[in-house]
C-alpha cells in the first residue's frame, strides 16, 4: 500500500462498501467466517443478492392482473396460492402462500405482528414501515385508523380482515379490479397494482 500509516491499514479499496459502517463490517465478518467454515461458497451470497434484486412487486402485480382476466387462474390462486404462482416461476418454498380476496364487502390487510413475515418470493423485501413497531402494533388493534393514515378510507359497512403472517404461512391480498378497466390487457392492469395494494394498505386506481 502506498501510504500505510500507523493507524490505518488500507488493504481494501477506500470505497469498499463492506467497510462503510460497523454493521457493514459485521456482515463482512459473518460472511468471511462462514466461508472459512466451508458453509458458504465464495460468490454464493453475491449471487443470492443479485437474484433477490430481480424480485420486485411487479412480479406480484402480474399475478394479480392474471387473476383479474382469467377466472380459472383466479380460482387456482385462491385454492392454492403456492401452486398457482409456480405458473409464474415463483417458488414459495417451505412457507405456503394464502391469497385473500378483497370483495365489495371485505377488505383484507396483512401484517406480521411478531416480526416481518412477507411473501418475499413474490414481492421482494418488505418496506420499512411493514417492519416498523408501529405498524406491527397497531394494524391488529385499529386497522381502520392505520388504513386512513395510508389514505385508504373504507365505508363502515366494509368489513376489515387483518391477517397476521407467520413463519409458516404468507399472505397476499388480491385487490378488487377497479371500475373503468374494461378491455385492459394484463400488462396495463399490472401497472396499477402497487406493492401496497397487495399488502392491503392501498387500493388500485384506474
Amino acid at each position: 500500500m502506498p501510504h500505510d500509516g500507523p493507524h490505518h491499514h488500507h488493504d481494501h479499496a477506500p470505497d469498499d462498501p463492506s467497510f462503510a459502517s460497523r454493521s457493514a463490517i459485521g456482515a463482512r465478518a459473518l460472511r468471511e467466517l462462514l466461508e472459512e467454515a466451508g458453509v458458504l461458497a465464495p460468490g454464493e451470497v453475491a449471487r443470492q443478492v443479485e437474484r433477490m434484486d430481480t424480485i420486485t412487486p411487479a412480479l406480484g402485480a402480474q399475478v394479480v392482473a392474471r387473476a383479474w382476466v382469467d377466472p380459472a387462474f383466479k380460482a387456482r390462486l385462491l385454492a392454492d396460492g403456492s401452486a398457482a404462482v409456480r405458473e409464474f416461476g415463483v417458488e414459495m418454498g417451505a412457507t405456503p402462500l394464502h391469497v385473500v380476496e378483497n370483495t365489495d364487502t371485505i377488505h383484507n390487510m396483512i401484517v406480521c405482528t411478531l416480526c416481518s413475515c412477507y411473501p418475499k418470493p413474490l414481492l421482494g423485501i418488505p418496506p420499512d414501515w411493514y417492519k416498523s413497531f408501529e405498524y406491527r402494533s397497531r394494524a391488529v388493534r385499529e386497522p381502520r385508523v392505520v388504513l386512513a393514515e395510508f389514505g385508504v378510507r373504507l365505508s363502515d359497512s366494509m368489513a376489515v380482515r387483518v391477517h397476521d403472517s407467520t413463519a409458516d404461512l404468507r399472505y397476499l391480498v388480491l385487490p378488487r379490479r377497479p371500475a373503468g378497466t374494461d378491455g385492459w390487457d394484463e400488462a396495463r392492469l399490472a401497472e396499477i397494482v402497487s406493492r401496497d395494494c397487495m399488502i392491503g394498505t392501498a387500493l388500485p386506481n384506474a
Binding site: 462498501p17 459485521g26 459473518l30 443478492v49 414501515w129 405498524y135 406491527r136 388493534r141
Partner: peptide
Amino acid sequence: HDIGGDPAGPVPRAEHALAPWEKEVDAI
C-alpha cells in the same frame, strides 16, 4: 417481540434503499 395490539404512534412511512450490507445479511 410480541407487540401486536400495543399502543404506538403513527406508522413511519419513510423508506430507505437497502445498503449493500443489508442485502448481504438477507442473502446470508
